[in-house]
């Protein structure tokens, strides 16, 4: 039960209930990518306005579980206004913690730390990382859909 409370922390539930930067594409959006988790049917679209090496605006849409929705929502908040390199490096940091089980730098992760509860649920890690992989594809200008499998 302890684990479950960490997985579904207040921040996650809040972002699932009212996802931020959700459902609209940014004005002058010039990068979009799609992600899909065929195992559970999660679909996510990440769109951004990327200019002068900076993510000026970013949003997402789609249908997914609480973990993927909250992860996408928190991600858009964390990345708005960041440079492409910063975004990539934050993605790498999340990946290192969630997938490679490296110790987290909580200060750097900030609110994203709420996603760490997923580590105890190996079947759910992909739910948390899907929006990030999709963001990475959008940033790189790849429009082939990202899949978790």
């Amino acid at each position: 039960m302890h684990d479950l409370r960490e997985l579904y922390e207040e921040v996650i539930l809040d972002h699932n209930r009212s996802p931020r930067n959700f459902g609209r594409r940014p004005a002058e959006c010039n990068r979009t990518a799609h992600g899909h988790n065929p195992l559970c049917g999660d679909q996510v679209e990440v769109s951004m306005t990327f200019r002068g090496g900076v993510i000026e605006d970013i949003s997402f849409s789609g249908e997914g579980c609480a973990i993927s929705t909250a992860s996408a929502s928190l991600m858009t908040q964390a990345l708005k206004g960041r440079s492409g390199e910063e975004a990539q490096s934050l993605f790498d940091a999340m990946h290192a913690v969630l997938v490679n089980d490296e110790p987290p730098d909580l200060e750097r992760l900030g609110k994203l730390g709420a996603l760490l509860g997923v580590k105890d649920f190996p079947m759910r890690v992909k739910c948390a990382t899907l929006p990030w992989h999709t963001m990475g594809a959008a940033l790189a200008g790849r429009d082939t859909p990202v899949t978790t499998e």
Binding site: M1, D3, L4, L7, Y8, C40, D42, G64, C65, A66, I67, T69, F121, M123, R124, C127
Partner: peptide
């Protein structure tokens, strides 16, 4: 989402 239902039921 059904995926969250599955995780909580498993717990």
């Amino acid at each position: 989402h059904a995926h969250d239902v599955g995780t909580i039921l498993d717990s």
